[in-house]
Structures are given as structure tokens and as C-alpha cells.
């Protein structure tokens, strides 16, 4: 997996301020984070862009807005689903899981599958 890394030096904002690091897991793999940063930022810095698979069609999804508006970044933390990775700070030992395809029992029938009486 490709790592994009961090912006260590910035001509106006200066060097990246020092921060404590902590570790957390994402789908069982360990990652490092800067204390207080969002799950989405820590994962992107670690090269992870896909945060879940679409519940119905399985297409990969990552952050879109990065500020809590779009809900594209939802992950599961400690069993709680639908948590926005872009708004949630990483905590030491956090167990983050991506979303996967869910059963969709109420899918609409295609036209030619319908019984003629309908």
C-alpha cells in the first residue's frame, strides 16, 4: 500500500508541531496516529483510502467532505456502526472496522422477473 505521508514542513505554517503518538487497529491491522487527529487523517497518512464497501453494491468508498457533512466515511468502532471517521479522534487501542456489504432482502424485482398479474 502506498503511503502519502505527512506535510512535515510548510513554508507558512512551519514545521509539523510535535505530538504524542498512539496506535489503533483498522480491520485488525495496527496503525499509528498523532494524538488527537481524526481516524480518517491517520489512515490516509498510513496509505489507507478505502474506509468501507458500499452496503448494497460493494463499491469502495473513502472520505468525501472531511468535515462531517456527507457520511461517506462511516466506520464501526467498538461495535457502534455509522461513526464518521473524519470527525472522530483516534484513541489509543481503538478498534476500527470498515463497513462491508449487507444483505438486502428487499431488493426491487426487475421488470421481467415480475409475475404477469402484477
Amino acid at each position: 500500500m502506498m503511503s502519502y505521508g505527512r506535510i512535515e514542513h510548510h513554508p507558512v505554517l512551519g514545521p509539523l508541531p510535535p505530538a504524542e503518538t498512539c496506535s489503533f487497529s483498522y480491520d485488525g491491522r495496527l496503525y499509528k496516529a498523532r494524538e488527537g487527529e481524526s481516524i480518517a487523517a491517520a489512515l490516509l497518512a498510513g496509505g489507507v483510502r478505502t474506509l468501507r464497501l458500499h452496503e448494497e453494491n460493494g463499491s469502495p468508498r473513502g472520505i468525501y467532505c472531511n468535515i462531517g457533512h456527507c457520511m461517506e466515511c462511516r466506520v464501526t468502532i467498538g461495535g457502534i456502526t455509522g461513526v464518521r471517521a473524519c470527525l472522530t479522534p483516534v484513541k489509543e487501542g481503538m478498534d476500527v472496522r470498515s463497513g462491508t456489504v449487507l444483505p438486502t432482502p428487499f431488493r426491487q424485482m426487475a421488470e421481467d422477473e415480475r409475475s404477469p398479474s402484477l
Binding site: 506535510i7 505554517l13 483510502r49 469502495p60 468508498r61 468525501y64 472531511n66
Partner: peptide
């Protein structure tokens, strides 16, 4: 919807606030 597509504001926050490329 592909991962890697984001709003321009998302890139702003990732760059200047989170300092992640």
C-alpha cells in the same frame, strides 16, 4: 464515489489542518 475523490474543501482541511498529503 471512488476513494481518492474528495471535495476541494476536504483537501484544504487535510492539507492545512491535518497536515496529511
Amino acid at each position: 464515489t471512488l476513494p481518492g475523490v474528495m471535495s476541494i474543501g476536504a483537501a484544504q482541511v487535510m492539507t492545512n489542518v491535518q497536515r496529511v498529503r
